[in-house]
Write a protein that binds this DNA or RNA. Sequence first.
DNA 1: TAGATAAATGCAAGTGAGTTGCTTTTAGAT
DNA 2: ATCTAAAAGCAACTCACTTGCATTTATCTA
Lengths: 151, 151
Amino acid sequence: MSRNLHPDSVLFMHTHHDNIRDILHQKGLKATPLREKLILVLKKHHGPMSVEEIGKKMKGIEYDQASLFRTLKKLSESGVLSQINLGEGFTRYEYACLTHDHHHHVMCTVCKKIMVVPFCIPPKFEAWLKKKGYSGIHHRLDFQATCPDCA
Amino acid sequence: MSRNLHPDSVLFMHTHHDNIRDILHQKGLKATPLREKLILVLKKHHGPMSVEEIGKKMKGIEYDQASLFRTLKKLSESGVLSQINLGEGFTRYEYACLTHDHHHHVMCTVCKKIMVVPFCIPPKFEAWLKKKGYSGIHHRLDFQATCPDCA
DNA sequence: TAGATAAATGCAAGTGAGTTGCTTTTAGAT
DNA sequence: ATCTAAAAGCAACTCACTTGCATTTATCTA
């Protein structure tokens, strides 16, 4: 491959494209247009997206909603995405490959903007549960508040 | 009222009944059979119940599902009940009048049993958000794990 | 490079958890 | 006893997915 290409060239795009294909292949999944586009959209948007938000960004590709939901589910099960439930009555999805560090969110109750918060529960909470005989412990923590812009 | 009645007597039951009526009246709500039965069911069962679980305990009374949902919503808005979302895809309801202390839950991922946990997030978390300009801060914290009985 | 094949997609219909509009009934006040 | 706003009943609807099944396609293998 030439090393004198402009970064915006088709070949550069193609290289970028190959990264997503590789992610899928590493997880033992077929690289299909829908999957590649979905990962691209979620990789670009930082933060958890609703299916509605995802849909608006899926320009240039046609797909069935059943395939979309199935694909989101499969990608989440494979660890490419992570499912986020903020108690809104629907699931949000976040690109997880780079963001595989555990984190929590605040959502503005007015504008619905979501931010990451830089803290997690003290380890003693899970230790208490372990001592009580619980195993495979996971938790969910999120904040609802009026953000500075909406106050 | 006589002070020589057996606690299980009809009059004692009636007194008990009146308590629920009073709760409703104090909140400015009419005391109806559906509301009284709902509160009774949720008061008896300690912990958050799904609408399905509630339905099974509603023996001896007929009601429409729209009324049930509307009533649960209204009682939650009035603070008689509290709504709990454990990420299951539906809402649970808990009797809140006595349990108005803030608390969190663990749910067993196997048997779905729910227990209260005796801790809450450190105050510095909300302090951090406040300093960032957030107001009206609420949070949700819950644990998913295999309980001692299901391990 | 042409099959073979398991996996993915498309399409249509279905489900669960509520919600809405409108009419009738009823609790509580006068 | 009557009045009236609130609650309940009924039917239809919505939203967020899910399922069954036929068709297509990405990848494997010869």
